[in-house]
Amino acid sequence: MIKKSDSKLLSLATAPILGQPPSFLKKAWRLLRRLSGDDAYERYLAHYAAKHSGNDEHPLLSKAEFFKQWQDEKWQGIKRCC
């Protein structure tokens, strides 16, 4: 189940990244977080709430568990070239 602190993160994650939000700086910050994967867990929470909420087959992962899986998966296959 999603804790209260997570739901705050959730609203952040679902906010449009380049929509109408307040300032340019905020947009740039969101873009940077998205690009670097800094917000990956928040996006996972949003995805979880939308697709698997209340589903016992996919228990909600903690941030550390999620990050581990996310990082290991990101590094399969060709990532860099010349």
């Binding site: 990244i17 380049l18 873009l31 996006r43 996310w70 998966e73 990532k79």
Partner: peptide
């Protein structure tokens, strides 16, 4: 929600450019 994720075009652009 993992490797297949619809993503904003500027974010994809960043990842793509960093990779190439």
């Amino acid at each position: 929600g993992r490797d297949f994720v619809p993503t904003h075009k500027w974010v994809v652009f960043g990842h793509h450019f960093a990779a190439i």
